[in-house]
Amino acid sequence: MTTLPTKTDRKLGLVIDLDTCVGCHACVISCKGWNTQNYGAPLSDMDAYGAEPEGTFLNRVHSFEVTREQAPPMVVHFPKSCLHCDNAPCVTVCPTGASYKRTEDGIVLVNESACIGCGLCAWACPYGAREMDGAEKVMKKCTLCVDRIYNENLPEEDREPACVRTCPAGARHFGDLSDPDSDVSQLVAAREGFDLMPEQGTQPVNKYLPPRARDSLDMPDLASLCDPAPEATGFLGWLDRALEKL
């Protein structure tokens, strides 16, 4: 049923630390690897060795430049995947019931055998978290590695999403965000974690942690160093003006 549950028992999700992320794209690759070889239709590549290769990914890393006043600009690497929203617009638009949000842990999933590939859920998502697979023609999205986190055949340390497990910088955290005492909730509280596009009313479960304030050196005003040379006088000044007139 594509109505949203009024309440979920838990809210499993990710906390992504924009201060720590180094933009290595390891999470992108491990996500693609796990989700191609395990649950659901594989994440295909189209024209993989041709002129215009492209593929289905459930997690992508963008890099942004933030220009600040009175401080040098910052580069922030920005991994983006499904935020498993409490008020997920992608779920309610689904005409077949293929999209659903689980009551037990809040994970938003697609039942691929009921997906007609209309693409409306991808339109409804403000974050671009859903991609139609070019080969299977069904909608693919982050499953929060639902086939890892409960998988008793895996060693306990591997029972977390592939992106979290692989992140070499420790920038990704997984846990229950409905429990105020959980590590992830405490991290969000301590670091003032925020929602992406709160004005879209989606109430995302995943949170992002802002870059920490950088140390500030007593830097000279860089712009002033770029000022043009002071006006020359005397012979050089005459030469300067004469050349200017040519």
Binding site: H62, S63, F64, E65, V66, T67, R68, E69, A71, P73, M74, V75, P210, P211
Partner: peptide, 8 residues
């Protein structure tokens, strides 16, 4: 924090 622009 500041003005945001896509870098890559």
């Amino acid at each position: 924090i500041g003005k945001v622009r896509l870098l890559e």
